[in-house]
């Protein structure tokens, strides 16, 4: 007998805290007619604790989070935040010994699956050129989810690569708590990245798959006076390419 799939979408506190990112993901899910249990809008996965070195406190904290997640009886979870994703996928089992009884997917994997199964329809806008920014969290510091987001984007727009991409992609500066510790340094890194990677390509749109990258790159873009650069999180960008 097949167990019925019950999907949970873990928004994560950073996406939930940024209205445009939250709306982007919700719009995507509703346009794709996905049935899901919303979670993590008010619940942090615990990554700030592990990044801050609060290991013992994190161990205690993530147990409570895991209990809450397990009680929902979901069979599959999707999150658009690489931090949440890597916490559930790697840190919970490997660092804290908690096996979650459901499959964890990052949004890029989920969108790639939906596309393959023909469950989402994206407008063909091959005249639009976007540069894809690889978040470190699902890239070199994670399982290397480089092709999934590109496949999805290429199905609707033209993807432009930075000279250094995928495993050698340049970080936006938004991770590792840097946006909390030295926000101006984090934003300076984003600005530099845009100047080095994006402007020479003549592209004015960046798409990425991480709320931290999206926010940090947008802050960096705002510091470039002579050109307007738009930055989108993948769910947000895809939602705009979908028929209502």
């Amino acid at each position: 007998m097949e167990i019925e799939e019950k999907l949970g979408v873990f928004f994560g506190c950073t996406t939930a805290g940024a209205p445009h990112l939250l709306k982007g993901l919700e719009d995507f899910l509703s346009k794709a007619k996905i049935d899901y249990v919303p979670m993590g809008k008010d619940l942090c996965c615990g990554v700030p604790l592990t990044l801050a070195g609060y290991h013992d406190e994190a161990a205690e904290y993530v147990k409570k989070v895991a209990d809450k997640l397990i009680s929902t009886k979901i069979t599959k979870m999707v999150t658009s935040c690489p931090h949440c994703y890597m916490m559930f996928k790697r840190e919970y089992p490997e660092e804290f010994g908690i096996e979650l009884p459901f499959k964890v997917l990052h949004f890029v994997e989920f969108a790639d699956e939906l596309l393959k199964e023909g469950k989402i329809k994206l407008r063909n806008r091959k005249d639009v050129r976007v540069l894809y920014h690889d978040p470190c969290g699902i890239g070199r510091r994670g399982p290397g989810l480089y092709e999934e987001p590109r496949r999805v984007l290429e199905s609707c727009v033209q993807v432009v690569e930075a000279d250094r991409n995928r495993v050698l992609g340049t970080c936006c500066g938004g991770g590792g708590l840097l946006r909390a510790s030295l926000p101006k340094l984090a934003v300076a890194a984003a600005k530099r990245k845009i100047q080095d990677d994006v402007l020479p390509k003549g592209v004015d749109t960046i798409v990425t798959s991480c709320p931290f990258c999206t926010l940090n790159l947008a802050d960096g873009a705002a510091e470039i006076a002579d050109k307007e650069i738009k930055v989108f999180d993948l769910p947000q960008f895809l939602a705009e390419q979908m028929e209502d």
């Binding site: 592990t50 990044l51 070195g53 470190c136 070199r140 510091r141 495993v167 050698l168 992609g169 340049t170 970080c171 936006c172 500066g173 938004g174 991770g175 590792g176 708590l177 840097l178 510790s181 030295l182 340094l185 984090a186 890194a189």
Partner: peptide
């Protein structure tokens, strides 16, 4: 707390040092 923990240094380091891991 100045490291973004991005891990690119490890990719290019001839000694394969993962500075992000050291900092964590």
């Amino acid at each position: 707390y100045s490291c973004a923990l991005c891990g690119r240094c490890k990719e290019i380091c001839p000694a394969g040092i993962d500075s992000s891991k050291l900092i964590e």
